[in-house]
Design a protein around this nucleic acid. Structure first.
Length: 618
RNA sequence: GCCACGGUAGCUCAGCAGGGAGAGCGCUUGCUUGGUAAGCAAGCGGUCGCGGGUUCAAAUCCCGCCCGUGGCUCCA
């Protein structure tokens, strides 16, 4: 809020014309003598607290200059960041009420007014003030601190040399060059719709939902199926790694003493909602719930390392509008989030290394190989210098160059983190898997363990998302399909994620019974099969199976009935010009698919098996 | 949040120097019962994103808002 205060012999105004946002007012004009006039602009983010502070400020000045009357005069021209009219009127009224111990007048809001005033001209007769809330001041400070953080960029080469990024030759590392360019130069120049957005709609995976807020999608049956499989897979991998799965609330008290400081540091990215008496924010990660849970737990050194895991459906971040896109960046997303409590830095490093390997494995099994992403390590200079060999040893896991971002001071809660970044067709980078070593939150949340000598100590905490957000994994898989397509391959999802794994197409209605019979046989292997029983031509049905990216297409007719074998079109081995077809038995086909999906979760098809019964969802 | 561009049938889009709301696909019905990427015909289908304004007349021009995409910014 901005105030311009003028101590005047008198002010006199006359109402001229109404604007669209005018408040009701019946006086035509007003004149007040011996008055302190407060020209006021109510700005965005102003609240009751600000209005009260402003009132106090006005009272103080009035006392100093010896004015007994106040005129609050709405004046939009002091700011270019105005609040909406409703808020403005409301806060002006609050100011008026707060000053009711004095004689207070208020000029109407939203009218064109002519005014005359006579300024007294003494040294205190003209003052200006800027009022903001406590939280806002802290926020501003946090943002300024963040600006001060300077990044130093290096490449850690496969030979474990740390090279300044400008001196690294990116020959043979084209994708890394794109990633580094995105990270540092932040320059991209493309004007294409992201390929995955088109795919997500076409394949009936997900779509925008206009009735919700931006960044909240609807997931169609096929999308939910894919998402569910990924969720279950990552969850199982984390449990196998040794994590205990938990569930925590999605909203928390904004004024909870522990949470508050954190929010002030990373402001205005949360959804805020009103409970009966308290204000809540929607979680933007699982950290809150898990840390509060660990705060109550009794931990000893014998329990460590201790891992807890939650799949958050959802985490919420109110990202800026212009940043939202398809499945890449959302305001509601599903995050596998594992936290590991460790005794000391040695144990932290050991876990960090193991979880790095876990992330590589999880992505690989999902269908994203090391050549599909680029590695970034972000570290404080102190940590790097004290743990140089350890940081360099990360090269041994994937043997490809790593982008290193180094800070001279620690601003974030971690001293070391890595991310695997996917670079898409538009050369934009997005983080998938990440692990961080947190040196700050154990203390903040009061998480302690009893050590062997009986003393209470603060542990270190690792944050790990083994795959990154599930939606973002789907984005990366779809973008990868676009790359494959550009290379002349037919795009497809990994077989374990394909909603339909096998499609059976009877040559004519006469073979429908046979198709149903084969369908049941294959289903016994826990494979998702459907039947195109529509009254369409064979060619049409083949084409539709292809546009749905069905990995195995089986045509059933006279020939198959006689031979007892299936003719299977294999998408992974076909191109647009030449299809690969193999003769195989039901058992051979089923075993081939089971082998491809080994170790992955399975699910039944949730949409009608008969295509004639299946609705189009968009 | 800022700047640019876009929003017309279920989908993809044409129409937009103001005056009849269209095509292809899909869907329904009928014919066709087929051997590896779109068989034929007819029919159904629209608050032209939402609200306001200009005009005798607005999908078309103007203003505001919502949604999407790109860029900026951001990314705990």
């Amino acid at each position: 809020m901005r105030l311009l205060l003028i101590h005047a012999d008198f002010i006199e105004y006359e109402i001229k014309e109404k604007t669209a946002i005018a408040e009701e007012f019946n006086k035509k004009s007003e004149r007040v003598e011996e008055v302190l006039i407060a020209f006021t602009s109510v700005e965005k983010n102003d609240n009751e607290e600000v209005a009260k502070k402003a009132a106090n400020e006005i009272r103080d000045v009035a006392k100093k200059v010896g004015a007994e009357r106040i005129m609050i005069y709405p004046y939009a021209h002091l700011s270019s960041n105005l609040a909406d009219s409703e808020t403005a009127i409301n806060l002006l009224k609050i100011m008026e009420a707060e000053l009711s111990d004095l004689e207070v007048h208020r000029a109407p809001f939203g009218w064109y007014k002519a005014f005359k005033l006579s300024c007294k001209g003494h040294p205190l007769s003209e003052l200006s003030r800027e009022i903001s809330s406590e939280a806002e001041l802290e926020v501003t400070k946090a943002l300024k601190d963040e600006e001060k953080v300077v990044s130093y960029w290096y490449i850690l080469t496969p030979q474990k040399e740390l090279v300044e990024v400008e001196k690294f030759g990116f020959t043979n590392y084209e994708n890394l060059r794109k990633f580094v360019n995105y990270e540092i130069a932040k320059r991209r120049a493309v004007d294409v719709v992201p390929p995955h957005v088109e795919y997500m709609k076409k394949l009936e995976i997900a779509d925008y939902e206009e009735a919700s807020d931006s960044g909240h999608l609807r997931y169609y049956p096929k999308g939910r199926l894919i998402k569910s499989l990924l969720e279950r897979f990552v969850t199982q991998k984390c449990i196998d790694y040794g994590a205990m799965e938990v569930e925590t609330p999605i909203m928390y008290d904004r004024n909870h003493p522990t949470l508050r400081r954190y929010l002030e540091r990373f402001p205005a990215r949360q959804y805020v909602l009103l409970g009966d008496k308290r204000e809540f924010f929607l979680r933007f990660a699982a950290c809150f719930g898990q840390f509060l849970m660990l705060n109550s737990a009794t931990l000893t050194y014998k329990n460590l390392p201790l891992r807890i895991y939650e799949l958050t459906r959802y985490s919420f971040r109110k990202e800026q509008r212009g940043e939202l896109v398809g499945l890449r960046r959302l305001r509601a997303f599903t995050m596998p989030d594992m936290h590991t409590i460790v005794r000391d830095m040695e144990e932290a490093k050991k876990e960090f290394f193991e979880q790095y390997k876990l992330a590589v494995e999880v992505l690989k099994e999902i269908g994203l190989n090391p050549e599909d992403y680029e590695i970034a390590v972000r570290v404080t200079r102190d940590f790097y210098e004290q743990n140089r060999d350890f940081v360099h040893s990360l090269i041994d896991i994937l043997k490809k160059p790593i982008l290193i971002e180094m800070w001279n001071q620690r601003f974030f809660y971690f001293v070391l983190k890595f991310e695997f970044n996917f670079v898409d067709a538009l050369e934009k980078a997005s983080a998938l898997s990440t692990v961080q070593i947190d040196v700050e939150n154990a203390e903040r949340y009061g998480i302690t363990y009893v050590d062997a000598d009986g003393s209470r100590k603060y542990p270190l905490i690792l944050h790990c998302s083994a795959s990154g957000a599930i939606e973002r994994v789907m984005y990366a898989l779809l973008e990868k399909c676009k790359f494959e397509f550009d290379k002349g391959k037919l795009p497809m999802l990994p077989v374990w994620l394909s909603p339909t794994q096998v499609r059976i197409i009877p040559v004519s209605e006469r073979f429908l019974d046979k198709a149903v019979e084969i369908c049941k046989e294959i289903e016994n292997y826990d494979i998702r099969v459907d039947i195109d029983d529509r009254a369409e031509t064979l060619s049409k049905k083949i084409r539709d199976a292809a546009t749905e990216w069905v990995p195995y297409v089986v045509v059933v007719g006279e020939k198959e009935v006689e031979s007892g074998k299936l003719t299977v079109t294999i998408r992974a081995e076909s191109t647009l010009n030449k299809q690969t077809r193999l003769e195989m038995s039901v058992k051979e086909l089923a075993e081939r698919i089971k082998k491809e999906c080994n170790g992955k979760p399975t699910a039944k098809l949730s949409i009608p098996k008969m295509l004639s019964k299946r609705p189009s969802m968009r």
